[in-house]
């Protein structure tokens, strides 16, 4: 049984597409066959982040219109043969596809892949409806900001109403030093409001921006880094493995402080 997961957030710019690209790549590295579906018609980005822009010939719209075969529209990644991308059309709007069409497309992909990850556009309108049409699970990406958390909360409510009960949380762009200075919401604050299981915590890191601009997902890089490890851990948790959460505060304080925190009961992140 393949898993259909929608990656959504409500608010824009919190890192949905980056997460989708990296998680897809990480899952493929774990030996799974992964299809990424860009549901952001009219504002497609996923191909850029994967560095596959110049290889997009047909898009989901052409496939749905019957102008090409499924294999023609799917873009295979050379670096990672187990990963394919179904690109969105850039010259259309979100209303050009219906939830039923999206559902049919995703279910077709689900027949031949272990994972189908759907990259949801921001907002809760038609694009969102399309993206969640076939999903059985959801990953909510949020940043530790009140606006992002509020929107995420709304989206969780909408997902529940659509019968998607398996919803998990990724807190992105956490700055441990700001959390320690009480200038940023902590992961626990976010969890308290959203009340959904935590899937992973990603630190705010410049390397993510660099890799995005280069079109090379971070998990592909040779060099080990904290965000790379955090992303691979998320993929392993998706696979059902139990992986400890990283202690992101480690770099930022002294041994004494860590010891004190450990005495107090060891909060993470």
């Amino acid at each position: 049984m393949s898993r259909i997961i929608v990656i959504t957030s409500g608010k824009g710019g919190v890192g949905k597409t980056t997460c989708t690209a990296n998680l897809g790549m990480a899952l493929a590295q774990l030996g799974r066959k992964v299809a990424l579906v860009d549901a952001d018609f009219g504002l497609r980005n996923l191909d850029l982040l994967l560095g596959l822009e110049n290889r997009v010939v047909y898009t989901a719209v052409e496939y749905l219109a019957g102008e090409c075969r499924l294999e023609q529209a799917l873009v295979r990644d050379k670096r990672q043969p187990r990963l394919v991308l179904m690109p969105a059309a850039q010259n259309r709007t979100k209303e050009s596809v219906t939830p039923d069409q999206m559902k049919a497309l995703v279910l077709t992909l689900a027949k031949s892949f272990d994972y189908v990850l759907v990259d949801c556009p921001a907002g809760i309108e038609m694009g969102f409806r399309n993206a969640i049409a076939a999903a059985r699970e959801a990953i909510i990406v949020t940043t530790p900001e009140i606006a992002a958390v509020r929107d995420a909360d709304r989206v969780v409510g909408l997902l529940e109403a659509e019968g998607i009960k398996n919803v998990r949380l990724v807190v992105n762009r956490l700055r441990p030093n700001m959390v320690q200075a009480n200038d940023m919401m902590s992961v626990d604050d976010v969890r308290e409001i959203l009340a959904i299981p935590l899937l992973g915590i990603l630190p705010d890191d410049e390397r993510v921006i660099t890799s995005t601009n280069r079109g090379e997902p971070l998990v592909l890089s040779e060099q080990m880094s904290v965000p790379k490890l955090a992303l691979s851990n998320i993929a392993r948790r998706l696979e059902g493995q139990t992986v400890e959460f990283l202690d992101l505060t480690a770099n930022h304080d002294s041994l004494l402080k860590r010891f004190k925190r450990w005495l107090k009961g060891g909060s993470r992140g």
């Binding site: 909360d153 709304r154 409510g157 909408l158 529940e160």
Partner: peptide, 10 residues
């Protein structure tokens, strides 16, 4: 009686 969390927008 509502046995659930009311989320934003509810």
């Amino acid at each position: 009686y509502l046995d659930k969390t009311l989320r934003s927008g509810a």
